[in-house]
Write a protein that binds this DNA or RNA. Structure first.
Lengths: 118, 118
DNA sequence: CTGTATCCAGCCGGATACTG
DNA sequence: CAGTATCCGGCTGGATACAG
């Protein structure tokens, strides 16, 4: 179920297609955004204005962990609690998101990311 | 059905969320990629290595037209046939895709876009 | 708080057939 | 070639309840 390594995807040898196999949905990139903004905990992701459902959030966090975009770090034992932190692979998406933000601010006037990135 | 103007989306005032409402799926950005590479016709999109289904392609082309990413231009009458060309809004995604390509080539070694972009 | 599980309607997307 | 239509299984995602 956990399914480490990348599964059978790899639709083609195109880097965009490969990326989209992992990031091409409505929510994943929004979680990456939150992580880049410094959010680390389950509750923090739930508080984002887009109102992600709990099952979707749990599902995406697992997939992102399984595909090496983030790692879990214990910050409390009994019961164990995790913080989610980006790997370099995840961190390096910052430039992609930044390009998307620039585009988005142009074509959806009035939108704004909550805190400036880098 | 055609639904010009943006519908009810706008999940939030975040430019990334707005962008993902239109681009956040497995296929849309791949069609944009093809358009940026110079493809214009239905058949050309079908020939891409990712093998998009015809119904999905037709659906995405309509949505992209309805949301102003591309326009249709008649190149034959009776029966009427269209070529699909990016608007400036669509063209401006080039930088986003380019950032994604750079990222993808790093984390999916061996992948490569067929022809270099601009 | 940090999740997990479940119900469920609806969309996604693959395959295929069909029309002009 | 350029689409449209349909069948259909499975995933998506919203709501809610439940557990440690």
């Amino acid at each position: 179920m956990v399914d480490h390594d990348q599964q059978n995807h790899e639709r083609s040898c195109c880097p965009i297609a490969c990326a989209l196999d992992h990031l091409g949905d409505k929510w994943t990139l929004l979680i990456i955004r939150d992580l880049l903004l410094g959010k680390k905990r389950y509750q923090e992701f739930l508080e984002s204005p887009e109102q992600i459902a709990t099952n979707i959030l749990a599902n995406r966090l697992k997939k992102l962990e399984a595909t090496g975009f983030l790692t879990q770090q214990v910050y409390q034992k009994n019961p164990v609690r995790y913080e989610y932190v980006l790997t370099k692979k995840g961190e390096d998406l910052r430039q992609v998101l930044q390009a998307l933000v620039e585009w988005g601010k142009t074509y959806y006037p009035g939108t704004e990311v909550f805190k400036p990135y880098g």
